[in-house]
């Protein structure tokens, strides 16, 4: 389809959307005049029921715990998909990592970036752990803290070299963290099933509101989600980096290339 006809189709669709949107807007309460039932009810009862001061975490990991497990497996599947797509293809091989792009000059990392990166790495990791661990008390949780933790690994690459990144995530540790996080979530659910007959039932004592040990199973789910998100993001980062630094097209004239061609 040509660009002009595509624009025409889009314009028709946009006019239709505008009509439906304005119709829907007419029936919507004004911005700020919220009168939802679920949020209102949760704001009244959740603190008493679950002893978690962060209601968003209580909703994510308890009231909607089963849905969040589904979302987590979307994340898991997407990360696995990236890992599969970024494997060396038939006409490629994995070389020793080369930090410099081969087809252009790359400036070396400045000292300022090195010093700042190494100096900030520790605080960032600590902050990530804090955000994961206090997810049921203050804003944060496994999803946010996991991303912060992965940022620490990015800093190591920025301040050092690719080998430094592999040094702190050796072998399949990112894959392992991701898989353990995904399995841990289901494990918490199965424990609930064993303890009470309901999957993901929050059976642990809820503890004193405001303490790290409160809210029953929510901190544990937070921990597993943090593990999975951190592992998943590090894995994505490593796969994309390897694409430029490690995976090389096999030189079609060389013996490697010939062997590859014969096989395919």
């Amino acid at each position: 389809m040509s660009l002009a006809s595509r624009r025409t189709v889009f314009l028709v669709a946009a006019v239709g959307f505008a009509a439906l949107f304005l119709w829907g807007l007419a029936g919507l309460p004004d911005f700020g005049a919220y009168d939802g039932v679920y949020g209102e009810t949760l704001n009244r009862v959740a603190l008493r029921q679950r002893h978690a001061t962060n209601l968003v975490a209580a909703v994510t990991f308890d009231y909607r715990g089963f849905d969040t497990m589904g979302e987590e497996y979307i994340l898991f599947a997407a990360v696995v998909g990236v890992a599969i797509l970024m494997r060396a293809q038939r006409d490629e091989e994995e070389d020793a990592p080369d930090d410099d792009a081969r087809d252009r000059l790359t400036p070396r990392t400045s000292d300022a970036v090195r010093v700042l990166g190494l100096g900030v790495f520790g605080p960032i990791v600590l902050f990530g752990i804090y955000v994961v661990a206090h997810g049921h008390l203050t804003p944060g949780g496994g999803f946010q803290g996991g991303v912060v933790l992965a940022t620490g690994v990015v800093l190591v690459y920025l301040a050092g070299r690719y080998s430094a990144l592999r040094g702190i995530t050796p072998g399949a540790s990112a894959e392992f963290a991701e898989a353990a996080g995904a399995a841990g979530y289901v494990g918490v659910g199965l424990l609930g099933l064993l303890a009470s007959g309901t999957f993901l039932f929050n059976w642990l004592p809820f503890g004193t509101t405001g303490l790290l040990t409160s809210a029953g199973m929510i901190p544990f789910i937070n921990l597993f989600v943090g593990l999975e998100v951190a592992g998943g993001f590090v894995l994505i980062l490593t796969e994309f980096l390897e694409q430029t630094l490690v995976v090389r097209e096999v030189d079609s004239g060389g013996p490697e290339g010939k062997r590859e061609r014969d096989r395919s």
Binding site: Y38, G39, E40, V59, T68, A78, M86, F143, G232, F233
Partner: peptide, 27 residues
Amino acid sequence: AVDPVVQALTLTDVVVGATVSALLLAL
């Protein structure tokens, strides 16, 4: 307080959406 349900929906999707974007970029 504002509705915690829509915030929970948004926060999970922000992270999941980022990985799905990564999948599409890999493609």
